[in-house]
Design a protein around this nucleic acid. Sequence first.
RNA 1: UCCUCCUUAGCUCAGUUGGUUAGAGCACCUGACUGUUAAUCAGGGGGUCUCUGGUUCAAGUCCAGAAGGGGGAGCCA
Length: 476
Amino acid sequence: MPRTRIKDILASDKTDYTVTIKGWVRSFRNNQFIALNDGSCLNNLQAVITLDTDEALVRNINPGASLSITGTVVASLGKGQKVELKTESIELLGACDPEKYPLQLKNKPSLEYLREIAHLRFRTNTFGAVFRVRHTLAYAIHKFYNDRGFVYLHTPIVTGSDAEGAGEMFRVTTLPFDNPPRNEDNSIDYKEDFFGKSTNLTVSGQLEAELGAMAFGEVYTFGPTFRAENSNTARHLAEFWMIEPEVAFNDINDNMDLAEDFIRYIIGYAMEHNREDLDFLATRLADEDKQKPMNERSEMGLVEKLDVVLNNKFERITYTEAIDILLQSPHYKKKKFQYDVSWGIDLQSEHERYLVEKHFKKPVIVTGYPKDIKAFYMRQNDDGKTVAAMDILAPGIGEIVGGSQREERLEKLLQRMEEMHIPAHEMEWYLDTRRFGTVPHAGFGLGFERIVQFVTGMGNIRDVIPFPRTPKNAEF
RNA sequence: UCCUCCUUAGCUCAGUUGGUUAGAGCACCUGACUGUUAAUCAGGGGGUCUCUGGUUCAAGUCCAGAAGGGGGAGCCA
């Protein structure tokens, strides 16, 4: 008999039909009631076993054991669930030693501990919900761009370009590290390496995506990205996933509209398709909040926060306005900022948090940053001081999107590369887009795990990726 | 990488000015229990106090170093 997913059984009021369910035992109460979960949804289906069930089998019905149960779906005799399964036959698929199994329903393992047992943490309510939401967001991303005619472009993971300037890179090589071939000046001879040159893992697909945009009009990338920064924070990973749309003929305002529509769409999609999981995560977060002192508690619940994002335009301000707001703030006047504020500084975390969490209380898009604190490819504004950059700052997360209108004018781009010591001769393939039919264009990068954090309310980015890679940690 | 806090039973934690045999709740084991909902009740077992070195008559407790983790910062998405 084919397997029926528990989600489908629970979603329907239908009764008096026979099904086979397969899953893992969450709890076994009163030698009679099995709570079975198959991962299709948050909730378990209660299977009621009969008195004549084989004793040896009953002894093996422990949390974590896998079972195949065939029976009749009936209206529940007990309270707490609409339907339950009246068991006709049970097959033990895989036993689970209760003495060694770390997940017992009554235990409350910490998120940090669960991270160490990544092979089992999917079986918890919290991580089940997080990773179902993560999947939905990933699907919604593809759907959003597909529906708008974007081409999904696979940019390389191994890259020979080391001028992207987005951070420290992981080296990719097959050379023996203890005795690599050397040039006469003792430098390493990469001509002997696998690719015949020095190669790294990508830190961004943007430059390659720009090439695609110059032919398809609109493209996006969605793939793994690697940064070898020694960052030990709740919002950095060494391996993370990034979405980078790039659109020909778009200016910075089109870019902001796209980013805002995009974020709103995928959040709305998750709200529509994972409401049960999000409600659970909201409750989890509210419970966690109760442990905190009053002044550290969040002002609104998770679902409420997502509703605010869905129903309100993001605040759009220029960098210059942001600096003014900070300078005028009571916070600044009371000298509560650790870092001083003046035009030209890079906004510090505390400044971004103030703008987003205290002043506007919703996502904020900041544009027009000083050119000296931004990347070489960003389009120079007419004032000669700023570039058409945009960062989207989200409450609790910080920077969730970084993007810009790109400098499409070859002369201006070359001049900026020279000022910033970017070797133009290594990037002719990129500069050619500005030589052969250049057009205004714009794009941005959205950190996938950061949006998953925002939607699920998880405080640590390591808890929204199945197998986190961070400095000193590459388990599994 | 910097600042700061932490590491004690399978899990979550307590452990006083250094002092005899290191505790609790849950989990686990044994038994009871056929309408439970984190099931409940009775009984039982379980420890390299993260590691290395030091001070001391005596170290879970004090000192130094290492590893791992939390919170904050920098870098960024």
